[in-house]
């Protein structure tokens, strides 16, 4: 019996290399069989170092995206056009904070520490989704983000509910349940604008024009250039390729855009009877790479704001810790 919590043992348990090569081989076989049988790997199970590292990187990046993603939308909370829209937007942004927290917890089951993850975000050593480096210029952007950005996120996240790593899969189930409200409120918002005055309609169209291509880039580079894809598919972390998910998303969006009375900014977009999918134009990957490198319109602003929020909240964390130390002697503030 091990007298420690699941979370902590992830760190101490590590990979039981201490027992030598033969034991490792046995562990590897059990791991492979578990993945092959479509069962879940749980925190205290043995796992290959590269599997652990891949998950930490992916889950951390996902968590960072959720909390950085709060910024572009929070930008409009004070200027929402009605109390109803304001309450909805606050609930959505609060959900994104929650998604970040579910995911940070999942990363911690692999032995990562919260402080360290935040530090890596703040110093640019871990990334977040490039989509959040674009600005929200008008109120219609809130609608376009809900419909397209949350929509693309859902397309990515639904298969992750069956990811081979248990805590990540469970976090995704919770996230996906909440995301459908996000997408629907965005769609409803755009519909209201599209059916509104000519100026409102134009505003909705402009937002869709600006968010469409960055949303398609959210699925990552094309399959033949995607560095980690094959291994992640073998480990059943990933279930579908980037291009496959992107195609699925386009197929879903085209009729939805028609119902909105808005067009998607791609002259090559047309139904391909033979393939049973929509054909679409080439994606500007140079732009993607530039934004990823830090040269997007808002990279600097997002991280600066994130760091400021963290620093300005330091006194709250300190005060709460001091209060806890004073009032509940049985609860150790220092984690053992």
């Amino acid at each position: 019996m091990a007298t420690a919590a699941a979370h902590q043992t992830a760190r101490t348990h590590g990979n039981a290399g201490q027992e030598g090569g033969i034991a490792d081989e046995t562990y590897q076989r059990v791991f492979d069989a578990t993945v092959a049988a479509d069962e879940r790997i749980e925190p205290r199970d043995w796992m290959p170092d590269a599997y652990r590292a891949t998950l930490v990187r992916q889950i951390a990046q996902h968590a960072h995206s959720e909390i950085i993603g709060m910024q572009p939308e929070a930008n409009w909370i004070t200027r929402a056009p009605s109390l109803r829209r304001k309450a909805i937007l606050m609930a959505k942004v609060q959900d994104e904070a929650g998604h970040g927290l579910y995911l940070y917890s999942a990363a911690e089951t692999l032995g990562a520490s919260r402080e360290d993850l935040l530090d890596k975000l703040h110093t640019g050593r871990q990334k977040y989704s490039s989509i959040f480096n674009y600005p929200t210029l008008t109120w219609a952007d809130v609608g376009a983000i809900g419909w397209l950005v949350d929509g693309a996120a859902i397309t990515n996240q639904v298969p992750l509910c069956r990811c081979s790593y248990g805590p990540y899969a469970r976090a995704m189930v919770r996230v996906c349940k909440e995301e459908s409200f996000h997408q629907r409120q965005g769609y409803e918002l755009l519909l209201a604008l599209s059916r509104g005055t000519p100026e409102q309609h134009a505003m909705a169209q402009d937002a869709v024009d600006r968010w469409w291509w960055p949303s398609l880039m959210m699925f990552g580079p094309p399959d033949d250039e995607s560095a980690h894809s094959a291994q992640s598919m073998a480990w059943k972390i990933k279930r579908h390729s980037n291009d496959e998910l992107r195609r699925r998303f386009v197929d879903i969006c085209v009729p939805q855009a028609e119902s909105l009375g808005l067009t998607l900014p791609d002259p090559d977009l047309k139904w391909n009877e033979e393939r049973g999918h929509y054909d679409f134009g080439p994606i500007d990957w140079t732009e993607f790479k530039e934004v990823l490198k830090g040269n997007g319109p808002c990279n600097e602003q997002r991280i600066t704001q994130r760091k400021r929020a963290h620093d300005e909240g330091a006194w709250v964390r300190e005060a709460a810790a001091a209060y806890a130390a004073k009032h509940s002697p049985r609860t150790e503030v220092e984690q053992a």
């Binding site: 019996m1 091990a2 007298t3 420690a4 919590a5 699941a6 979370h7 902590q8 043992t9 039981a16 749980e42 205290r44 199970d45 043995w46 609860t331 150790e332 984690q335 053992a336």
Partner: peptide
């Protein structure tokens, strides 16, 4: 508190 949980070991 997570530290108060005693878990069976997967190896056993």
């Amino acid at each position: 508190p997570s530290s108060a949980i005693t878990a069976s070991s997967p190896d056993e």
